[in-house]
Amino acid sequence: MLKGGVMFGTILENKLRKISSSLLDYSNRTADMIKESTDSFVNEDVDLAMEIIENTGEINRESGNIEYECLKILGLHQLVAKDLRYCAAILRTATELESINALAAYTSRYSIDFTQKDKNFYKPPHLTFMSQTAQNMLKDGVGSLLSEDIQLLKRSTKNFVSLQGFYNQMFSKHNEDKSSGASMHTILVGRNLLSTGHHIMGMNDKIAYSIIGKRVTHHKVFYNILMK
């Protein structure tokens, strides 16, 4: 039984390792999508924006592949406990990454539309900060899942507060001075980045559950548990 158990563990662990590696690649490409889509807007780079839109479908195909591999593992190995929670977190993460890539494609769409309508409009630095923060949140979140590192998860969660802060500042500036402040275009891109943060927080819920083994499904509760 012991020998069988060890064999089983090795096969399962190899499969989980492979799927983790795919998830890491997928999340890196998603982080690039966040960066490049924001850059395309800030730099009015229509070519880059079109390239992102074209690549989104191909990149997001990986979400389906990861889901299929996860379902195979769940069916064949009938996972329990930590392994089950880990697989559930991978499934949720892949789904959230797909949504984040879709948001990046929307941002790229705005880049094309608004650059054609209104060249050289004001883009506040907040967008770049938000993009960088969202990328960090994503990398830390996925990193925490793969390395079971709760500190990385805390950092990812904490960064959501910064992301919200940047967005609020940008939004209030827009409301104060609509002529020279951030344009509505910018607000829309900012909202996409904020939504990206929400998706990462959703993903972090499941990652926290995978690591801690306690159900955390509400952002506030989640925040309280992790920040204590």
């Binding site: 012991l2 158990g5 060890v6 089983f8 563990g9 399962l12 996972l79 329990v80 406990a81 930590k82 392994d83 089950l84 929670r85 083994g213 306690k214 159900r215």
Partner: peptide, 19 residues
């Protein structure tokens, strides 16, 4: 017990990593 075991030994056993 099978999804959120509290003891590491339980987790190791039910996930087949025991021993």
């Amino acid at each position: 017990l099978f999804i959120e075991p509290e003891d590491k030994r339980t987790e190791d056993y039910i996930t087949g990593r025991f021993g």
